[in-house]
Each structure stands twice: as C-alpha cells, then as structure tokens.
Design a protein around this nucleic acid. Sequence first.
RNA 1: GGGCAGGUGGUGAAAUUGGCAAACACGUUAGCCUUAGGAGCUAGUGCUGCAAAGCUUGUGGGUUCGAGUCCCACCCUGCCCACCA
Length: 774
Amino acid sequence: MPYNHKKIDKKWQRIWGQKNTFKTQDFSKKPKFYILDMFPYPSGVGLHVGHPRGFVATDIYSRYKRIKGFNVLHPMGFDAFGLPAENYALKNKIHPEESVRKNIKRYREQLEIIGLDYDWSRTLSTTDPDYYKWTQWTFLQMFKKGLIYQSLEPINWCPKCKTGLANEDLEGDKCERCDTKIIKKPIKQWVIKITKYADRLLKDLEELNWPENIKELQRNWIGKSEGYVIEFKTNDKPVSVFTTRIDTLFGASYLAIAPEHELNKSSLIKNKKEVQKYVKKSLGKPDIERSQEKTGIQLKGIFANNPVNNEKIPVFTADYVLSYYGTGAVMAVPAHDQRDYEFSKKYNLKIKKVIKNDFQNKAFENFGILINSASFSGLESKKAQEKIAKLVKAEKKITYKLKDWVFSRQRYWGEPIPLIHCQKCGVVPEKNLPLKLPKVKSYQSTKTGESPLKNINSWVKIKCPNCQGPAERETNTMPQWAGSCWYYLRYIDNKNDKKLIDPRKERYWMPVDFYVGGAEHATRHLIYARFWHKFLYDIGIVSEKEPFLKLKSPGMISGTDGRKMSKRWGNVINPDQVIQEYGADAFRTYEMFMGPFNQETAWSDKAIKGIRRFLDKVYLLKEQKGKDIEKLFQKTIKKVTQDIEEFKFNTAVSALMILLNEMEKSRITKKNLKIFLILLHPFAPHLTCEIWEKKEFADNVFFQKWPEFKEIKEEKTKIIVQVNGKVRSLLEIDSGLEQIEVEKIALSKIEKWTTKERVKKIVFIKDKLINFVI
RNA sequence: GGGCAGGUGGUGAAAUUGGCAAACACGUUAGCCUUAGGAGCUAGUGCUGCAAAGCUUGUGGGUUCGAGUCCCACCCUGCCCACCA
C-alpha cells in the first residue's frame, strides 16, 4: 500500500489536537451551525463498526460546513446512567463509577482514531454531578409546577432487574434489558405528567424537518383520538364510557369495565366472590396476557341503562378493557367492534346491527348508514354522531394513548431524586444540589425490590429542611432517559455552575440545526427530550419551542452474515481493527460508500479494499499533461456538493471515483488537484491534509473555500433514437437541433427497423430523444 | 391486526424523478508483470444465444409513444406499535 496510514492518521490527529483546530468559539461573525450526534451509551464491549456511521456522517457534514464558512458546533459526550451500566458493573464486580470511567475512556479512544472533528473541551457525561445537578434542578422545577405526582398503581415489574419499567421499556411482556417476563406489582412511583404536553408534542411536529416515518411513529405513539364521553346510569353509581363511535349507541348490548374499575366493589353485586377472584387474577397479568384471550364475568345484580333508548343492559368486568385508557369502561357494540363481537360470541350476548352491512361472523367497523336506530336510521355515521351526542348529552372528548411517564427506578446507578419525605411537611424538595449519589460498596438491589439506597441509613435518615423533624430521603433514582433529555443544551455551556445554560449562548446556538441518530429512539428519547425542552421553554430557560430542527437516522450496519451484529452470533466487527488495517480514511469513506445513509446494509470485509485502492491512487496523483476534463470537474463539484447536503454520501464518493479514474488519464493542474483534495477532505481528512502538505500548497485544506461550480453548456448532445419506445440507436449531434433536422439524421440510422412511410407519429424531446411510432 | 420502510446482476448498489436499466465498487474470467501473489496493470463480465437477435427491475393487470419510476390488486422481507374503545 503506497501510503502509511498509521503514521499519517496519528500525525494529523496530533496536529489537530495541538492546534486546537476544532475548538469552537461562542459567538462569531460567521453564521452558526449546530450539528449533533445522539451521544452513545458506553457499554463494556466498546463500539462496533455500526455505531460510527452517524458520527462519520455528521463529521463529514461538519467539516463541509466549516469549509463553507460556518461557525460549527459539533460536540460529543456520554450517556452513562442506567441499568445496562449497573448490570455490567455487577457482573464484573466493580463499581459502576469505575466501569463507566473505563468505558468512556475506551469509547473516546475509539472515536478519536476515526479522526472526528469534535470539540472535546465541551464534552460531558450524564453521571457527572456537575451535570446531573441540573437534571435534578429541572426535576424540582417540574415538581414545583405540579407536573410530578406519586402513584401506587400497579406497574410493570421486572423480577430479575428488581425494578419498575415504563411500558416503553418492555419487549412484549418481557423486560427489554434482561428478557425476563414481567409481572404487575403495585409500587410507589414518581410519575411525570407528560400527557399534559400531548397536544403540543403532536402539533409542533408539523414544523419539524424530520423524516416522515419518524413523525408518524410519534403521532401513533401520542395516539390522539376524538370521541365522546357518555354517562350510563346504573342501579349503583353511573358509569362513564369513552367512545369514538357514538353513532353505534343503539347497538350497545352490554357495558364492559376494567378490573380496576370502582364499580367492581359495589355492594349490589350478587356474585361478589367470583368477581373478586376474577379481578385479582387479572390485575396480576401483564397486558399482553390480558390481550390473548377475551375473558370476563358478569356483575350480577347490576344493570345499566342505555341513555338513548332506556334499554336495560348487563355489565361485565372484562380484562380486555384497559383502566388507563379513556374512562376505563366501554360500551360494547358487538356488531361493530371485533373485540366486543368475540366477547359476545363467547358469552352469548346480543349482537345488533346498527350500521348497514352484509358482514357475517365478524364485526363491521366502518362508518355507514344507520339502521335500527329509531329516528336516526338512515343518517350517515358522522352526522348521526353529533345528533345522538346532543340527545344523550354526551361530552366531546380527546383522548391520547400517551401515558404519564413513570420516572423512578428502584436502582442505585441513576440520578438521585431530590425529594425528602417528612411526616409533618409531606414531600419537600432538596435545597442543596447536586444531591450526590452516595458512594457504596454494595449496590445490589434489596430483597424487597426497593432501591439499594434504602440501606444507607446515614444518607436516608436526615432532618427535614423545613421543620428539622425526622425525615427520609426518596431512595428511588431517575430512569436512564433522564440525562439524555437536555444534554444538547449543556454542550453550549458545559462549565456553568450558576445556571443550566447562559441565555445569551442559548440564543446564539439553539436550536440544534441538524440531529443525527438511530431511529430506535423515535418514540422514547425523542419524545422525552422534546417534552423536557418544552418544559424548559415554559419556565423561560430556553427560547425555542423545539430542540431539533432537522433529523436523520442512519441505517443499521449488520454483520457480514446479514444478521444484527452481536456477541451471540460472533459477527461483531470492531472499528479499531479495520482502522488498523486500512486506515481511518478508508474506514470513514467505506462507511459512507456502502449504501444509502438511512438504509440497513451488511458489512463487507472485501468491499472496503476498493476504497483503499481509491485512496492509494489519490495519494499517487501528480500534476501532469493530457486532455482537458474541466467539464467533468464542474459536474463533480456540483454532484459532491449536492450529495453532501442531502446526505447521499454513497453517490458523492462514487462521483469522486469517476473523477479520479478520468484524472489518471488526463491533464491535472495544481488548481484541479487542490479542488479534488478539498472535495475529498470531509471524507478522508488525514490523507488530504497530508497530500496538501506534501505538495507544499499554501495554508491547510480546511482553511480553503469550498469550490463553486459553473454550469457548462454542452455543445454536443446525445439523442436516444427509439422505434415504438425501444432504443435502436444513439446520435451524437450538435445541441439545440430542431425536430426536422434530427428526424432526417435519425431515420437513416433506423432503416433496419422501419421506413419513413410506416411512421405514424413522432415524439421529439429536444436534446434528449426521438421516438418513431409505427 | 395496524403503521412505516423496502423488493433491481453472483454481491453492495446507481438511475438527472416518466426517456440508453445495472453508473461506482466488490467478486470473478483471461492476459501481462512477478521467484512468488492475499500486490499492480490491461481487457471482459445482467441472462439466453455460435450469431443475428431476444429477454430482464417480487407477481399480475392498467395508464403512456415510452414505466424500475405513475395507478390498481396481490405476494414476500425488515422494523416499529399492538385489545387504545
């Protein structure tokens, strides 16, 4: 291999470091550009080649923007609290603080040898007390604003991790982290009222320049639906139900309530024992199990009145009804809801069609024309809804699938929740932040499932800051997602110990212009962070409603076998080894060349060799005489510029290859060589810097201007000649010729296929195509 | 069950958005060079065919002078959500 990548990579990384080349100044005459990577979670195994795909892309974009004359902020940090880090530490019998420090060091080394242009002086870790001080501070602001409440409802419990999990942390009915089947367990949890922001989270999505599929995922996650709340009178307390199909009210043949519903405790129930047994059984089941087969039990002795026709209908407790959605009770319309249909079949309940249809053996769920609905028969669903609602005095209501955010974990390795429980004063916020995580030897979960912090008496038992009476600290910690909700703000002002962020700097840098990271965060990190940001906006800490203007997600890189890279398959490829063998520039350029940025692709040990060959040839380029290829140069400048802008790096690289292949056979001037190096620089920064220096070109590659391209008019043009749409010939003629002239030339070329007489019609597009239809 | 993305050579892929399908690269074949080749260079390489020529973008239909691209139906793969009333 003609160039020594090991030497060159090291040399330039050292020079960039010594000269502080990538140090970013706050404020500048240049326009600002904030480009951000989703910061990594430093696990024990280190990065595999899939992780840096996004980092390399932002690096290319960032270097491109710098050369284009922007003041670029491109920072990197680490998200290191949470279960995986704690489990890793437990397994390896070291303290998580220790393992996290080691892992971060390793990650940073791995990132540095790729030659990324981060300003490391702005780095941060979510586990650093100077950082989580402000995570805790924001939490307390939410607490003061009444956005946080305690709840004792049954939560998803992982018996192995011994912690409560939000629905988002589940994989079906299993714990996402350890694959253990979860159970329902009532535990006192802190919960954030993210649902209060549901509408804004939904509405503000519209303005964002995000991929449509990610927006759609968020919309579905928030899950807005409009309907009505109808009150059904019973012989006990009335039951409110939520429905989106009030037009089917005449078809309601029973009420179904969730096992958690109040009415289950009614004294009028005749079969109390059975009902209680059913309720108890249901509450222990995870939701998935509840969804597998529809079961229920009638509340004997209880009846409801259908408000539209006073019909007396039975009431069932059924665990297919979810307590946390709508009102926890539904009116069942078997003819028009598949779930109710199945239930009715099983328990032999009335199935009454009220929307015209020919369906048999299943429910018809579409809108349509009402039948069997007294004076409303004949109306169309939408119209009927308003009228029926008016009649039964139903209230319009908007419901969301989004649930409040269970914010506490019964674990050691997280931000301590800065609250104090006092018998007299209730819950009191901590005054001295950061509330540091105490150092302990043993941080195993307690047998009761409570946080390990519970065992540290000296930390837990304190005096109430209000009344000086005996009080206890909250021992739950925050979930893994907490720290990543606002880290992008802290890069802007990472050493500020007075404020979360200096407002002047915030106004200068925010919002993030471009955010790049995995699509798997579409519904968790990206919703939580947007929520957190909106809260900070509401209390005047930030000036923008949305944190991330533009978003792109890299496609996964799978192993050479096409399977997801994992220890289990033994197909993990380590970037260090690849860089060792082929150099950082070949690694970077190959990751961009392998396919479209947002598409999953399998790694290939062989294909990277082509990139290395390309770079070797670049290294050997020298000024020489030959034919002029100015046109191709202009075309390539245009292509590479546009492709970088659009994150189409694969075709940008291929354009550079095409240019190089031509250059080898053509005239190369000093000017052209410089342009080529500038175009290649974002992809292969080490090599281009080296060549630039070796050729004794002035200055440095990244202090150059990005080349502008000129549109060059072609004098000659190629015209496709078709007969009946099939290509039969190709003409190379002067540009701008009119149809009559082209016809003459073209006809002589296609004598084999047709004659002038047989031509019925001619389709002509100037400078492009002529098609003879016969 | 719902949503989203996708289906093009032996492989990764490209196609100016309706106008030469397969650019670029990997692999491979032949030759050169070499003591050697897991180096380099030259030429070839979608399929069928000796050739002329024909065929080819998951399947079937449609629109069009012309379809990988637009429309309809279906099949397959991947990801996400999933009793959301």
